[in-house]
Computed example of a mutant assay.
Amino acid sequence: MTDAWQDVRVVLLAGGRGERFWPRSTEARPKQFLQVDGKESLLRATFTRAAMLTAPESIYVVTHERYADLVRQELPALPEANLILEPCARNTAAALGLAARRLGPDSVIVAMPSDHHITGPARFRVTLQAAVEVARHGYLVAIGIPPTRPETGYGYIRRGAPLELPTVLPAFRVDRFAEKPDRATAEQYLESGEYAWNSGILVARADVLDQEIGRHMPELHAVLEQVQWAAPLPPGLAGQFAGLPGTSVDKGVLERSDRVAVVPGHFGWNDVGDWAALSRLLPLDENGNAVIGEVLLQDARRVVVHGGDRLVVLLGVSDLIVVDTPKVLLVCAREQAQEVRQVARIGAAFADALFACGDAEDLRGGPPCPA
């Protein structure tokens, strides 16, 4: 960018567990560190995108302490001082509140989740420039993506009155946030033209974000106040973080604040939130199938397959997700991709137990498992 971005700091959110991408995504190596599309990791792609906006010295990563080494491996260009480590993961409100305190009250934060796929870099830059301008007027600015289909897996933002601000793109007050809708409601949102997908990208002055956390999440703010502006974390913060509820910044702040604006983002955007999203990222064959790895399809339609080194064969099936890993084979209906997180923890625990008492190549050859 230009000197107009001297006060801007890009913050990459990289502390999530990515349970909808189980069994590839695990607690030891969650999805932001995976090459889910067979290319570079989601985190590295996000960093590359941020580096098109500003210098690496102005890019920060917020993550859990356990993932510090993974971030360093993925992002060797990230300055060590720009790695903000949460003592305990408590969702995006705590992560962004901590980042705001660390970066100083005069900073403008551009917060990006690390699991997006974005195209149209020029339009992306212009959108964020407009959002930064709006944020300097004291607003918490969400980026809303004009919907192209009745998507039931995303949250929505209803656009309110326009803001009379001298920005490069129009901005609007937020009338309300809407939860992930059912199909009929999503169709109504699409037809009305008043709703946008909530991208999860947030732009705000650090002091405004801190003030709004104080207004709407006083318990969190009381803990954050122990972090002096632009200072390292004080000792003893971990225990207090552990006692906080895990609340997203959307739920805890944006849905309650009267200082929220939205800037429409007319660039290509996909939330890589579950395995079904690969059908929008990977090239499709003539039957709408998206595959990675050694895969043989016969009379298969609209399947998503993420394979490995061994051959995966699908015959006469449709609308499935298949993920093959050394420990776990996941097969689920494509329409239930969002529900994978419901089985992730118990499935991971069961797989670990099986491998602890059996051979990794042939479980039947190991000792008997305890009852």
Rank of each mutant, 00 (worst) to 15 (best):
A356P: 00
V322D: 02
C332K: 07
D352S: 13
R159V: 13
R158P: 01
V134K: 12
G252R: 07
G243P: 00
A45P: 00
L165C: 11
S199V: 08
Q240I: 01
Q336G: 02
W269H: 14
R9N: 07
G252C: 03
S279M: 07
A238P: 10
V36G: 01
N82L: 06
P245C: 06
P235Y: 12
T167I: 07
Q73I: 00
A238R: 15
A89F: 09
S199T: 14
G365Q: 13
D319F: 08
A130K: 03
L34W: 05
W22Y: 14
D299T: 00
H266A: 11
P368G: 09
V174T: 14
H266Q: 10
P113R: 03
A130R: 03
L202W: 01
G153V: 12
D274K: 01
E80Y: 00
P79N: 11
P56L: 03
E339G: 00
G18L: 09
H137K: 12
P181L: 06
Q240G: 04
V61E: 08
A95P: 07
A55S: 15
G15Y: 08
R29S: 10
A351K: 07
L363E: 02
A50I: 09
N198H: 15
A300T: 13
R364N: 04
Y67M: 05
V61D: 10
L85D: 11
A290E: 01
V203W: 12
I84A: 02
L233D: 07
E40K: 15
E57R: 12
I118V: 15
A135W: 10
V253T: 10
P113F: 01
Q188W: 08
A356F: 04
V223G: 05
N82R: 01
G153I: 09
G293M: 06
D210Y: 01
T167G: 09
L190W: 08
S107V: 05
V272D: 05
G246E: 14
K251I: 09
A344E: 04
E219C: 01
D37E: 15
I84K: 07
G97P: 10
E191K: 14
I59V: 12
I109F: 08
L43P: 09
S114D: 09
A142V: 10
K180D: 06
A360R: 14
A122R: 15
R136T: 07
E86P: 00
V168L: 14
G265W: 10
I59R: 11
F177C: 06
I321R: 05
H117K: 13
L354Y: 12
V272N: 03
C88S: 14
I145Q: 11
A196Q: 12
V8A: 10
L12I: 14
D250T: 12
P170L: 09
Y154N: 13
P79W: 13
V61Y: 03
Q35E: 15
G97D: 06
N289Q: 00
G268F: 08
A89I: 06
L233K: 09
V253P: 05
A89P: 00
G104A: 01
P234C: 10
V340A: 10
W197M: 11
V331G: 04
G307K: 03
H64G: 14
V110L: 11
E57C: 02
F124Q: 13
T48H: 11
L75R: 07
L202C: 02
